[in-house]
Amino acid sequence: MTQIHWMIRLVRAVAILFVLAACLMVFIYTPFYSKMIVKGLNYFVPVEVNQVAAKSQQNASLSEHENLEPGSNLWIARQAYLRLVEEAMSQQKFEELGLLQARYRALQQRIEDEQLKEQQEDEKNATSVPLLAKKDETTHVKDATKHEKENPENPASASSVIVSQLFDLNHSENKALRDKYIVFLKTHPVTTPEDEASKNEITEDIEFIRQNQSDLRASSYHAKPYAIVVLGGGLTLADNRKDIVVNAYTKLRLEKTLEIEKKYKLPIVLSGVEAPYMQAWLK
């Protein structure tokens, strides 16, 4: 029997170890590994549930309305509905709350049907011709392009223009859509719901408005600002690869800060580990 050279044995051992390490890495990145770890923790680590804390977490959980995407049609419809509910409460027209809720449900259903129809049309068109930009998307792109032309020294802030318009209820498109929904909520023919679930939902909406009365009032009447708070967005190395400076994200925030400071003349509050570097950049 011929004896195997030690170098061949070494190569075999290294190859076997390499294959085993590769199998281990593949196993770690599979769902079986995470499930095994969770089962092990659940079995070996005792879990004590604090009932008071659990109850508080349950009360603080987001509702389906708070999970609506800001700027979406359903979100704008929700804001229109809450505005009319608040008006009815201030005028003590509580008998209208049931009708408002029924109309709001009808409005939600209509918006969801329209979105489903658009989605089906998009899927159908995707197989034949390239998708065309939607009207609202085209408008936002035009706004961003206009902003870039007016501010060539800061084109990166064009994206912030689009985001701010999506979240701004007073923006022309959002305001027009909200006014349209308000007319629907005031005039759509429905019957007042009498079931217990509807009454409970109305009670929850009223409680929501009462708890957030100050927030709603602040959104309607802009409070006078008294400081500019800037959160750090990260650091990077300078061109000399030695000095630490603010990165592009933080720089974009600081440029906006200077723009606001020139307008309102307010003190600037810097936050995060980036604060000293942001201060140096501002100086």
Rank of each mutant, 00 (worst) to 15 (best):
L185M: 05
N200D: 13
S220Y: 04
E148D: 01
R78G: 02
E69S: 09
N125E: 11
Q58M: 11
I76M: 04
Q119G: 04
K180L: 01
I202Q: 00
R12V: 13
G233I: 08
Q58I: 07
Q115P: 01
Q211A: 13
D136G: 02
L252H: 02
D195H: 11
T138E: 12
A156C: 02
E153V: 02
N59F: 09
N59Y: 07
V26N: 03
E66P: 01
N151G: 05
Q115T: 07
N50Y: 05
V161A: 06
K175F: 08
K135W: 07
L116G: 04
G98L: 02
E112K: 15
K180Q: 05
V14K: 11
V47E: 14
D205N: 15
P189T: 04
V161E: 08
D168I: 00
A77I: 01
K149L: 15
F44R: 08
A106Q: 13
L100C: 00
R12F: 11
E207W: 07
L24D: 07
K35L: 09
E118N: 12
A218M: 12
V26G: 08
K35F: 03
N125S: 07
Y264F: 15
A53Q: 13
A77C: 05
S90G: 03
Q57M: 14
K135D: 09
R12Y: 08
L237T: 11
T236S: 11
N50S: 14
I8M: 06
A176E: 14
I162W: 00
C23N: 07
L74Y: 02
S219V: 12
D243V: 10
P267G: 09
S220T: 12
V230W: 03
P70R: 04
V85P: 00
K149Y: 10
L107H: 01
G233K: 06
L258F: 03
S164P: 01
D136R: 10
S56R: 15
K251T: 13
L252A: 15
Y29R: 14
S56H: 13
W281C: 05
R178W: 01
N240L: 08
L41E: 07
I28S: 04
N59I: 05
H5R: 13
Y81E: 05
P189H: 05
C23D: 03
N154L: 08
N174C: 03
D179Q: 15
E194Y: 02
G272M: 07
S157W: 06
Q119K: 12
A21Q: 10
L62A: 13
T138L: 15
R103N: 05
Q57G: 11
V129G: 01
E96V: 00
Y277N: 04
V229N: 07
V45Q: 08
A156M: 10
P70C: 08
V45R: 12
F208M: 06
E66K: 04
A88E: 01
